[in-house]
Amino acid sequence: MSTEVKVSVCIFTFNQEKYIRECLESIVEQKTNFNFEVIVHDDASTDKTAEIIREFQKTYPDLIFPIFQEKNLYSINMHKPFISGWKAAKGKYIAICEGDDYWIDEYKLQKQYDLINQSDHDFCFTNAYKESTSGKRKVYFKKRNQTNTYSLSEIIRIGGGGMATASILIKSDILKNLPEWFYQAPVGDYFIQILGSCKNGALYIDDITSVYRTGVEGSWSGVRKNMTESEIKNEAYAYLTVFNQLRDNTISHEDANFAIARELYIATQLCLKLKYTKLAKELIELSWSYYKFITFRHAVYNFTRFLW
């Protein structure tokens, strides 16, 4: 076996002592015929997360390579922890996993590496589970896909939540040379999916290889339940700004309009749940100026349902 690192597994964690052990165990158990490394980026955790990482580093000194931040990078810019970890990667490909997610297929990396390394694609993902705090699981892709590719347009229209980030394998050059606008992006995973699929689309393996935990403390899904009106508005308009920068140069005019409209519609739904009705009206009208997902009658029904 060559000593060259082919894949860098980048784990990102902050105060996840409840989950980081299961995450690390699932990754060190991977079976491959190539060398891989595990970069664990701890963003200045204040619990026992760093202690558990050091325990694994001691057990697997040639596999686990931690980065311990003294100051929390996320508080400066939400993308900085990830960029810090990606810059340290030695592999041709990077596999991503957040500290509260985990893998359940010991051949995950091997399957993805074999497929992508024999192709001209830059991006590969698999099926996965969503797992609630109660342990209940749902499959991301219930309709079993008979093909193994998705076009860039399909990736955009699936949306950022359409695949598990823990299932992603991507060429490292893409993550090491991100455009300047990435720092202003409201989320990272969706735009990584788009950038990785720009060349020839995305490869897909219809095996369930990973688990994405939902609703845990500090998770993206959990934080959204408590967003302020100004935070929702800023996020919505950030999507608009970034997709307008991507328009035509990277993605088609039609795909950009569709993506903007959908993100504005999603923000509208969140506004209604949190009773931000004035902003909901503003965002749904703006969404319709790009693409109409729902009829006026359906929109009125939603508004009255949440208002009364």
Rank of each mutant, 00 (worst) to 15 (best):
V5S: 00
A95S: 15
N77G: 06
T3Y: 14
N148D: 10
L240Y: 04
Y113C: 02
I155C: 03
D62Y: 12
L307W: 15
I205C: 03
Y107A: 01
A280L: 04
S167W: 04
D206S: 10
G162M: 11
L246C: 02
I39V: 03
W308L: 15
S219M: 09
Y93R: 13
F82V: 07
N35G: 00
S119L: 07
K199N: 08
K142I: 01
Y150Q: 04
A238D: 13
F82Q: 09
E4Q: 15
E106G: 00
Y107G: 12
W288Y: 05
K6F: 02
A261K: 02
Q269D: 08
I39K: 04
I20W: 07
Q112A: 08
A261D: 02
Y183L: 15
Q245F: 03
D189R: 12
Q245W: 02
N117V: 00
I116Y: 08
I20S: 10
L246F: 01
F34Q: 11
L270S: 06
K136E: 11
R305K: 12
T32Q: 09
I192A: 02
I116H: 10
A267C: 02
E51Y: 09
F36Q: 10
F123I: 01
T295K: 15
Y265V: 03
D47P: 04
N117G: 08
K58P: 01
E51Q: 10
V38K: 05
A259M: 05
I284H: 04
L264E: 06
N148V: 03
F191P: 12
I156D: 06
T277N: 06
G161I: 09
T59H: 13
R213Y: 06
L246A: 05
K278Q: 08
H121V: 00
F141K: 07
V216G: 14
K171T: 00
D248E: 11
K281S: 06
Q69A: 09
Q245M: 07
I64C: 07
W288E: 08
C23Y: 03
Q57C: 11
I64R: 08
F243D: 08
I284N: 05
A89F: 14
F125M: 14
S2E: 12
L286A: 03
R305H: 05
I194T: 02
D43C: 08
A50W: 10
L246V: 00
Q245I: 05
V211I: 15
F56N: 14
Y265E: 11
A166Y: 06
I39F: 07
I156L: 10
F14C: 12
I205K: 14
K292W: 02
G160L: 12
E263M: 12
Y190T: 07
Y74F: 15
G218A: 08
Y183Q: 13
E131W: 11
A238M: 06
